[in-house]
């Protein structure tokens, strides 16, 4: 009988003894390169325990929206602000602003139709948009947005059909005009609430400014479109004033947003670095440029078109910049950790 030697594990160590031709070979010591590698491997990873992350992996999921959503923010904003302008033009009883009113209504109709198309494209099929209209949920800004967008087109269409008629139909058209202006106000600003109501640090941190920035940018977008495409003596100064106020407000809100987000410096980082930082900064320069062109004395057609182009680019790039900043913010676990450690998580609600 063979004696079984054991080291505590219930196995026969004799079986593990190497024998045979292969077992007799002399093994070369590992070369110096491998020794160096082995030394490196022997070291324990020493992460900074005062500021830990989980292998640098994100805490949050990044926004899953692609290019269509920032484009919707721009188109919806421009459509909404146009309707607001069209609604205000009803105050003028001289009839000189009728062209402006009609154009505003049409901008609203086309813009909201395009917005719906973009959203349905993003969702994949029309029934998916309809799912949002099954319920009315004030806790969900996106649900509110679905209702707002759905109220824009009908009111704008009725306004476009009847606003310039006389009698009861005209009154009906005017009421619809006002309604389209109100839904336009909501359409061009709610998108700010939509992204502010999220766990993404840079969006959540700037929630008090985002709706104002988006609203101001919508005004600038509408003003820029009229700057570029329409030459209407009577309406020119109306759209110019509206657009210029929008550009100034957009610039001011951009600065305010950087400061709000910058209350926790790490949270504002995507606004300064990377693709989002480039988009955001270029957008600010464009908006500032268009504002400068519109306030300098003298209003040649060429200069108005240039201001319009710059204003449009500024508004579009701003929305893509904010979107990309959200993506970068979600990817960075320290943005979440530092925001909440700085007392800007649930603690600031007390």
């Amino acid at each position: 009988m063979i004696a079984v030697t054991t080291d505590g594990r219930d196995i026969d160590l004799e079986v593990a003894k190497l024998s045979g031709e292969g077992a007799l070979q002399k093994v070369r010591p590992v070369d110096t390169h491998m020794q160096r590698v082995a030394r490196e491997w022997g070291k324990l990873p020493t992460p900074d325990t005062s500021d830990p992350t989980y292998y640098g992996r994100p805490v949050l999921k990044e926004p899953v929206w692609h290019w269509a959503i920032p484009l919707y923010f721009y188109v919806g904003g421009a459509a909404g602000a146009s309707l607001v302008m069209g609604s205000a033009a009803q105050l003028d009883r001289s009839g000189e602003l009728e062209n402006l009113m009609r154009r505003c209504h049409w901008a609203g109709i086309i813009g909201s139709a395009l917005s719906g198309a973009i959203l349905i494209y993003d969702l994949g099929k029309p029934s998916r948009f309809h799912h949002m209209l099954r319920v009315f949920r004030p806790t969900s800004p996106m649900n509110m947005g679905a209702w707002i967008l759905s109220s824009v087109s009908p009111s704008a269409i009725v306004a476009a059909m009847f606003a310039q008629r006389r009698g009861i139909l005209g009154a009906f058209g005017e009421i619809s005009g006002v309604a389209s202006g109100l839904s336009g106000l909501a359409l061009s600003t709610y998108t700010g609430v939509l992204i502010a109501n999220s766990a993404i640090p840079v969006w959540q941190e700037s929630r008090r400014v985002l709706p104002i920035l988006f609203g101001a940018s919508a005004m600038a977008s509408a003003g820029s479109i009229f700057d570029m495409f329409f030459e209407d003596r009577a309406a020119r100064r109306v759209t110019y004033t509206f657009g210029t106020v929008g550009r100034a407000a957009e610039l001011a809100a951009s600065i305010a947003l950087e400061r709000q987000a910058g209350r926790v410096p790490h949270v504002a980082r995507p606004l300064h670095t990377g693709a989002s930082g480039f988009l955001w900064k270029t957008a600010t320069v464009m908006t500032a440029g268009s504002l400068l062109l519109s306030v300098l004395p003298g209003r040649s057609r060429k200069r108005r078109v240039a201001a319009g182009v710059m204003g449009t680019l500024g508004s579009i790039m701003m929305r893509y910049g904010i979107h990309q900043a959200g993506v970068a913010s979600a990817r960075d676990p320290r943005a979440t950790f530092r925001q909440q450690r700085a007392g800007h998580g649930a603690a600031e609600l007390d």
Partner: peptide, 26 residues
């Protein structure tokens, strides 16, 4: 906070539009 800010934005935009029509016309 965001809904309040949206209210401010909407009020500002409405004011700007009315002002532009009343005082901005050629």
């Amino acid at each position: 906070d965001a809904w309040t800010s949206m209210g401010v934005a909407a009020a500002g935009m409405a004011l700007a539009a009315v002002g532009a029509v009343l005082w901005g016309k050629e």
